[in-house]
Design a protein around this nucleic acid. Structure first.
Lengths: 223, 223
DNA sequence: GATTTGACTTTGACTACTCAAAGTATACAC
DNA sequence: GTGTATACTTTGAGTAGTCAAAGTCAAATC
């Protein structure tokens, strides 16, 4: 069974590959080291050993990429993480801003048996509280095409689909203004020169966001 | 924060101290090593380091005993373990024969915050599915005086209070014959020379046990 | 009281992970 | 094309835990 450390490296590698837009290119060592929270030297030696286990392809000084086996393992970890997050919110009533931290620990401790009980209890959900897709037990998650809130024109009506940040402070802000996944809203104004976009969630006061914040909110236009 | 390994040593030490009857005497190294599942040498060196952290008192070749601080930590681990067991049975619907194993992992991963949510969800229970007392978040569990099924005379009516074994096979047997904690029964016969005791659970067929099995079932006489 | 046995401790070595610091390659500037 | 900055790799060392095997103590046996 892969160690907790291996699981963490693979998970972050997967997120970096997907985060880096479509060509799912090689990941730089520096980025991986920062994501996992170790020094560059540590990441190098760990990646070498992952490469020996055929979980990644590694080209020194070029970068690292998950193999098929590595991707499969990473998706299992991610599935655990995201199901646990949803479970903590829905069943135990934790706040969505704190469940990411909790799940970081539990994702390495939970058995398949317990995980599938949770999946059943929750009704086989396909997204977690942040709107991130929950990978199925085999295969890859299906990615919907989403638009960053940044790119919405005034008067657009849309629905929040995903919030791509795990900072509790940001998540609490989002929650307070009614922009959690599922929320519908209308874009009131968008002035790129002022780096600002104002949206009005249905049933809430309008709120103005800078582009850094708006870029983290992915929406589905329409309805 | 104590490592997972430290938590395991302290937990087993606590169980051995209590298991060894009232004078809560020193625990022999061999017993501890066997309980934790390491060689004797490993246990010696670990105990020395626990002693340096003032979690145990250690007298070479005599034995080891938890300090007040060690006991406190051990009780926290045990609380986590037993609340998790009950949670897995009650909320997730796992079989009581398999939750001990699962809880061995989860007891090291769960935060206080999640634990207290579970405690609330379950209504602040005071025993786990095996009848073992759940220590309160501070202080010691209160121990009820219980009688081993062994010591029951014929025609006694009693209630199963606690099953002191974690072997899935034994637990499944106990469940199958309706002798789980809470079950009431009457002792039909008890023949020490044949090493056998026959009990009839209310609403079930009678079942005969040898003294090794009957000794693991603790009951509360009366009603 | 000498010997044997069993329990315990010590020693040396190994795995898995980590960091700091020194070394090296690449790429970019000029 | 030479120089320098940056990113990466290598090296050496440390921590936490483990085992196997050798050594030691103490209690039971004779």
């Amino acid at each position: 069974m892969p160690s907790r450390t291996v699981e963490d490296y693979l998970k972050h590698l997967y997120l970096l590959e997907k985060g880096g837009q479509t060509p799912a290119s090689q990941v730089a060592m520096g980025g991986l080291a920062a994501a996992v929270g170790v020094t560059a030297g540590t990441a190098t030696s760990m990646v070498k050993s992952l490469s020996d286990s055929d979980l990644v392809d590694y080209e020194p000084r070029a970068g690292v990429r998950l193999t098929r086996a590595g991707t499969k393992l990473a998706l299992q970890v991610l599935r655990r993480h995201r199901l646990i997050e949803l479970f903590l919110v829905q069943t135990l009533g934790l706040d969505w801003s704190e469940v990411h931290e909790e799940a970081e620990e539990l994702e390495h401790a939970i058995s398949d048996k317990v995980l599938e009980k949770i999946d059943t209890l929750l009704g086989h959900p396909d997204t977690d509280p942040h709107g991130d897709p929950i990978p199925p037990s085999t295969g890859s998650p299906k990615q919907e095409k989403l638009t960053p809130l940044n790119d919405c024109a005034p008067n657009t009506t849309a629905k929040v689909a995903r919030v791509r940040d795990q900072e509790p402070e940001f998540l609490q802000f989002v929650d307070k203004h009614g922009l959690t996944p599922g929320a519908q809203f209308t874009v009131e104004s968008h002035t790129p020169s002022a780096d600002a976009i104002t949206v009005r969630p249905h049933d809430r006061e309008p709120v103005t966001l800078g582009s850094a914040a708006a870029g983290k909110i992915m929406v589905k236009v329409g309805r």
